[in-house]
Amino acid sequence: MATLEGHIARSFDGDLNALHMRVIEMGGLVLDQVRQAAQAYTAWDPQPAEHVIEREPAVNTYSTKLEAEQLVLIARRQPVASDLKAIVAMSRAVAELERCGDEAKKIARTVLRHGGRPGIATARDARHLGRLAVDLLHLALQAFDRLDGELAAEVIARDRELDEEYGAGLRRLLTRAMEDPRHFEVALDAAFVLKSLERIGDHARNLARHLLAIRPVAEPAGNGEETVTPPPAAGR
């Protein structure tokens, strides 16, 4: 159902595939932004943080250009059914990716503000959460790349793990902050960083949901006589 190919007008296949590829390209850039931002914070290293800030405009350019390409595709091809849903899903994916990029930027800014280096325990929590977020986003992008509904379902399941880790990390952070109120500002920054990483996980999950909208896991049978499960509502 959700293959982007097979049109009689093969140039439409080309257009859809090109759009798909550019969304994945943008995803690759955003993934690296997230990875570098997490690295900058946990190692308290300004270099990757500067890199993130430098590349942030590139993420926005992707977003603007992809939006324009989607509009052109809709205007020129007047897609219906699965084609229309695929384009809408890609448009939503771009929005999620852009927000991931924003979160990475926030984390990078925290490092560049020289607010205060996180303690060993906090850095460890952030590193762990960062790894989970990067893995999740990576998996979501892979699912989107391969149009793999089952992989998308896995992303959604694994986002819960990230949420739990975030909750636990935040509790530990709070305990430490109460023990040593002198570093309260550092703890506040850390809380925002953890929150950003958790949000990145949520965006990865949303990405997976948008994919499920065009690639439901229970594929309708070829004869169409079985009941078709409506795709889950995309979004939050």
């Binding site: 159902m1 959700a2 293959t3 982007l4 190919e5 097979g6 080309g14 595939n17 090109a18 798909h20 590829m21 994945i24 390209e25 995803g27 690759g28 850039l29 993934l31 690296d32 990875r35 990067v134 893995d135 990576h138 998996l139 992008l141 892979q142 790349d145 391969r146 149009l147």
Partner: peptide, 27 residues
Amino acid sequence: HEPRRAEATAAGGSNGRNRLAEGGLNL
């Protein structure tokens, strides 16, 4: 109805951007 695309390489710890680009779409 299977998408005709190259299989993306397995998950791991290397640079994700390159991996996505290499394992990306078969055009």
